[in-house]
């Protein structure tokens, strides 16, 4: 039997890779993919908890997370399309209009 801690550790690693990717990549599409990665890491830990604690609430939560992730991807990509149409850039370092 695989201990729960292993799953937590795996989930953490994937999550942190997602965070790091979000922090260092210039391309907004990749950043959105990193967000999906983080959400998947969280889902994984939720399913693992659900399994080990013998409670279905975790899996219900995963369904909602997937729903929200789908919505977020749709909106995020729509924003990206609008942005690309107006500015023709997809790189964050070109989008510093909020500079103080």
């Amino acid at each position: 039997m695989v201990p729960l801690e292993w799953y937590i550790a795996l989930s953490t690693v994937i999550f942190i890779i997602g965070v790091t990717g979000f922090l260092i990549r210039r391309n907004i599409i990749i950043m959105l993919i990193c967000i999906e990665l983080m959400l998947n890491a969280v889902n994984l830990s939720l399913i693992a908890f659900s399994h080990y604690l013998q409670d279905l609430k975790g899996q219900i939560l995963v369904i909602f997370v997937i729903t929200v992730a789908a919505a977020e991807a749709a909106i995020g990509l729509a924003i990206l399309v609008a942005l690309y149409r107006n500015k023709a850039v997809v790189h964050t370092d070109k989008l510093t209009e909020m500079k103080g």
């Binding site: 690693v13 942190i16 790091t20 922090l23 210039r26 391309n27 370092d93």
Partner: peptide
């Protein structure tokens, strides 16, 4: 492909991990 400050991001990620 990476932003200029990418080492900081990696360092942050590693320390959280």
């Amino acid at each position: 492909r990476f932003i200029g400050e990418w080492p900081i991001g990696v360092a942050l990620g590693l320390s959280i991990l």
